[in-house]
């Protein structure tokens, strides 16, 4: 007899898909913040008075 609290294959597959999508979204956000920082910092460094 199967355990009703146990995740079915379809649920496990759906959860894995959601987790991968979330991980990719977070990775994209981290990369985005890094690139934006470099771009904005780059401009300010180039214009700094010596």
């Amino acid at each position: 007899m199967s355990d009703p609290s146990r995740e079915s294959d379809a649920e496990a597959k759906a959860r894995r898909g959601r987790n991968i999508a979330l991980a990719l979204g977070l990775l994209l956000f981290v990369v985005l913040i890094f690139v934006v920082t470099i771009v904005r910092l780059g401009g300010n460094v180039a214009e700094r008075p010596f």
Binding site: S8, A10, E11, A14, R15, R18, I20, A21, L22
Partner: peptide, 9 residues
């Protein structure tokens, strides 16, 4: 009971 997929979000 259909589990939510990332495509649904």
């Amino acid at each position: 009971k259909a589990p939510a997929r990332w495509q649904d979000f």
